[in-house]
């Protein structure tokens, strides 16, 4: 059987997703299921010059970086034109990262003209209608290498990937980042973390953690197979969300002490009722350090 031909194209990007994917422990095993047409950092069958000329084959197109119609050129050609050429040829388009998916960080430079390829924040772009049937969204800043390998191996094996309304694989984005966080007991009992970098306490109340309303599997599929931001005591920045980036990432916005944004799908009245009850209990175990540390 012929291997699917994989093309990785970059628009306005920091290369973060390219670099992240290079950290995959089974990188070459995964790529062995594909014929690499061209890739920003790995050897491919064709030069980028040939890619620009528009004549190389493409079954799976990976897009990295924010999209702009005019003014961003490579080899004297509008990148938007290169992308559209291969988007038409491809059977699958994977938007890798929040920039390619929703606009992300680079959208901040020119919010009117820069967007994701098929979405501008949560809104569909004019291209959506043409490419929706083959689109898979993988937001994240950057994406976890195993999110991409999940999609690639599913495609290589001819499996259908269940997706949500923003075309995100449900297996990866059906969860919140909160799910699986080792600080969950502290969230349940509404106990703040006293500082960053601690194992104890929850970062949702003071330190700006967006895990309870951010879709992603950072605490299901661990980073470097070891940890996650929240497990290490750093707030989730909500980097997979269409609204990323936001400001004041290390501070929870509150209204008279009540978090301004509720955990995903939880009504404010339900959440506040729970807070009033759980905050009433003092649980000794949660007021203590998990272990003593060397000074």
């Amino acid at each position: 059987m012929k291997k699917p031909r994989l093309l990785w194209l970059q628009a306005i990007t920091c290369n973060g997703n390219t670099h992240s994917f290079l950290n995959h422990p089974d990188l070459f095993s995964i790529l062995s299921h594909f014929e690499i047409v061209n890739h920003p950092t790995l050897d491919g069958m064709h030069t980028f010059k040939e890619v620009i000329e528009g004549n190389v084959p493409c079954d799976v197109l990976i897009l990295e970086g924010s999209f702009i119609e005019k003014g961003f050129l490579k080899g004297g050609v509008e990148v938007s034109r290169i992308i559209e050429t291969y988007a038409k040829k491809a059977s699958y388009i994977i938007s890798a990262g929040t920039c390619a998916t929703f606009g992300g960080i680079f959208k901040q430079k020119d919010p009117t003209n820069i967007s994701g390829f098929c979405f501008d924040l949560e809104e569909k772009t004019t291209r959506y209608g043409m490419y929706a049937s083959k689109l898979i969204s993988l937001p994240g800043c950057p994406i976890h290498p195993k999110w991409l390998s999940y999609v690639l191996l599913m495609l290589a094996n001819g499996k259908k990937i269940p997706i949500d309304s923003l075309h995100r694989p449900v297996e990866l984005y059906g969860y919140t980042v909160h799910n699986g966080c080792t600080k969950n007991e502290y969230f349940e009992w509404k106990i703040d973390s006293e500082n960053y970098g601690l194992k104890e306490g929850c970062l949702f109340y003071e330190q700006g953690c967006q895990g309870p309303y951010t879709r992603g599997s950072c605490n299901k599929i661990l980073w470097n197979d070891i940890s996650s931001k929240t497990r290490a005591g750093t707030p989730c920045f909500g980097c997979t969300e269409p609204t990323f980036p936001q400001t004041s990432l290390f501070q929870t916005k509150t209204n008279m002490g009540i978090p301004a944004k509720m955990p995903l799908g939880i009504s404010r009245r339900a959440y506040i009722s729970l807070v009033a009850v759980t905050k009433s209990f003092k649980i000794k175990r949660f007021s203590e350090r998990l272990m003593e540390y060397d000074k």
Binding site: N255, M256, I258, A260, R268, R269, I272, S273, V275, A276, V277, K279, S280, F281
Partner: peptide, 17 residues
Amino acid sequence: GMVCVSGFITEIMIFFD
């Protein structure tokens, strides 16, 4: 604490919010 008065406290919190 506020366990038995949460019905009232919740509404005051919502008013403030």
